[in-house]
Design a protein around this nucleic acid. Structure first.
Lengths: 137, 137
DNA sequence: CAGAACCGTGAGAACAATTCTCATTAAGGA
DNA sequence: TCCTTAATGAGAATTGTTCTCACGGTTCTG
């Protein structure tokens, strides 16, 4: 967990705590809008902009990582709970995969880039979509 | 290359040809907007919606693949010219990496999912951003 | 080759996710 | 407790992408 801007420490508000707990509670990565609605249903009133701002800060600090599954939404999950995703090109369904299929990567590349994490998306067709495609010819 | 909808074949127009050639010409994945502007600067007048529609068709047909680097844009590149990306969390800069670091994956997973491709994003900090971070403390 | 059928196009409106603005609140150090 | 200033909320603004619809151009059929 690296501070975003040294000297600038973030304040602990109940909103940020609640947002982090909502992410922790979900099995897989969730979109900002869902975090917002979940908290509102839970009786906490907070703004959507607050959710986005908190998520941005968490990502900067390395606590949370963001993922694109390909449907135009950015999803967020705990960085510590790393997993990749399987995405169906037919129906758009997507699922977490536990076994990481990325080969060990040197922490530093030839160009001096320091690698701290990764995000992998395997795509293809789920069992159901394979059937429909076969039927269509 | 799989036809999107059997029985529906796409027509060959100069626009689609030009869009495909623009993608071929670029070293890495490019956003739709850039393809559009590049063609316009090249003297061809065509609509942005046309670019998006053509790209959507190409992706469906498997000729082109789309990638999210994390800056809110969808980028497109030739599927045949596969490569992954290195993204700097500090400045947002991103680059293609040629060596694929994804372990060979079974074409079919236990759940019957048929894997046809992948997309990997390695992230961290580029040399320049590491320096600024170190200086800041 | 002519005519019909219909897919692809262009322009701009519509849409949706995200970011910004700004007045207000409250965390945390002094 | 007081003070500085980061964080918040509400809604407007922004922006990437999709939709609408009339028109033109491809391709198929006869």
């Amino acid at each position: 967990m690296i501070p975003s801007q040294p000297g600038v420490r973030s304040r602990t508000t109940w909103q940020r705590g609640a947002i982090l707990r909502a992410i922790e509670a979900s099995q897989c990565h969730v979109p900002a809008e869902e975090i917002h609605q979940r908290l509102r249903r839970g009786g906490r009133s907070l703004g959507l902009a607050t959710v986005y701002r908190a998520l941005e800060a968490f990502v900067r600090e390395g606590v949370v990582d963001s993922v694109h599954v390909g449907d135009g939404l950015v999803r967020y999950g705990l960085a510590a709970n790393h997993h990749d995703h399987l995405v169906c090109l037919g129906c758009g369904e997507w699922k977490p995969i536990q076994e990481c299929r990325v080969r060990r990567t040197p922490a530093r590349t030839a160009s001096g880039f320091h690698v701290t994490g990764h995000q992998l998306r395997l795509y293809g067709y789920c069992a159901r979509c394979q059937v429909s495609r076969a039927q269509l010819g």
